[in-house]
Simulated assay, not measured.
Amino acid sequence: MPVLPHIAERSDELTAIRRDLHAHPELGFQEHRTSAIVQDLLTQYGVDELHVGMGTTGVVGIIRGKGEGSRRIGLRADMDALPIHETTNLPYASRTEGVMHACGHDAHTTILLGAAQYLAATRNFGGTAVLIFQPAEEGLGGARAMIADGLFDKFPCDEVYGMHNNPNGTPGLVKIKPGVAMAGACFFDIAVRGVGSHAAMPEDGSDSIMIASALVGTLHSIVSRNVPPTKPAVLSVTKINSGNAYNVLPDSATIAGTVRYFHEEIRDLIVGRMRDICAGLAKMHGIEIDVEIRNVFDVLVNDTALSEAYLAAAAEIVGAEHIRVSEDLVTGSEDFADMLKVVPGAYCTLGHDGTVPVHNPGYVLDDSILPIGASIMARIVERRLCI
């Protein structure tokens, strides 16, 4: 694959950076070490401006091209890890108990650093590259935090691009779904406040575990019995907690989970049914059920024309035979969607060797994608800000 020579020469350096980040993962809004490394490297690369602390731990670097031009292209990478115990036994496995880069954000950060080094050294473009290193992508609202801190007010962009690794066993395969591409997401927490009693005398209380169990089954029927099959949606209960003894019916139980959707009216329908069901069960059993439902990701929508431009840039690096226009909706969510609501752009996936899925304790990233991803990100800047 014709990786940009300047970047190819630094492949070992990129691998070293990525593996160091992997060994020292940090959760969302706690990426202090990662942020400091990004700042130090961007300074070494000679970026024109460096701005820190945006969205708590976010970093923004500015590189101006040697050609004339007022247009600005944003490139974004996320930096946070997941609360997962790593089981890979790699020499550079996580040294932080219970935290792992199981989604490839260590690679995303490294890829953008590789593009930054190249762009700062060559500057073969007219205009400005805005490098966005974002905290807290994994459901904590890092993109929204940066936007609320004035990201695109202080550093306006005409276009913005993101990238995600994909362990699909096909190294270098670049895919984009133009238009609506990834689901929006809500997280929910439900507290069932029953009446505790002796387990041998359930008639003396209101069994929170029984009520919560009924609630789980009913919630899982919402999509199949309320949502048109032509409008995909997912509701999954992911946590249920209650009790600490064999002979006690606890007075409370908690349920949590997520809703994924591609249409706002479907989200509203599901949320409404959830609240109605909880209110009905509470009245039936004479108890209280508290419901908190919060939106955490918007639906990700790729600009069609900019998706084509991104694929054209990628084709110069991986070859036309390794690019795909996808037709598949992805029920996973990505908070880059929040940036795309403010600035048009596109989000691609980059395939690599290995088939263990992300968010898995045994996930292993293929370092060979680092110079490929960096080259694609650098090339989209050069093409869109052509001198």
Rank of each mutant, 00 (worst) to 15 (best):
T128H: 01
H220I: 07
G332M: 10
L281E: 14
I380A: 01
H105G: 00
S11W: 10
A23D: 02
P83M: 08
L50K: 11
G362N: 13
G150M: 03
E86P: 15
R294G: 09
F155C: 06
Q117H: 14
R19S: 05
I7F: 03
Y118H: 15
I190P: 03
F187Y: 14
I289E: 05
V3W: 01
T331F: 07
H108V: 06
P371E: 00
I132R: 11
K177T: 15
T349Q: 03
A253Y: 06
L14C: 14
A305K: 15
H24I: 02
T88D: 10
D78Q: 00
P344M: 12
E9G: 15
T304C: 13
G184K: 12
L215E: 06
R64C: 07
V3S: 03
V343I: 15
P344R: 13
T34L: 09
K231C: 04
S242T: 14
P357H: 05
R71L: 02
C157M: 05
Q39K: 11
L249V: 10
A8E: 14
D78N: 00
A8L: 11
C278A: 04
F336S: 06
G127E: 01
V248T: 08
E97D: 15
H32W: 13
Y246L: 05
N168F: 01
G319T: 02
G257V: 05
G55W: 03
R267P: 15
L219T: 14
A282D: 09
V223I: 14
T96L: 00
M274V: 03
A23K: 10
T128V: 11
A214V: 02
A337H: 04
L113P: 09
S94N: 07
R260Y: 13
R64M: 05
L215K: 06
D366S: 09
E321T: 09
D40I: 00
G69F: 00
A23M: 12
T218V: 10
R72S: 15
G150P: 08
I287F: 13
V364K: 05
L131V: 06
P135S: 09
R225S: 14
T57W: 07
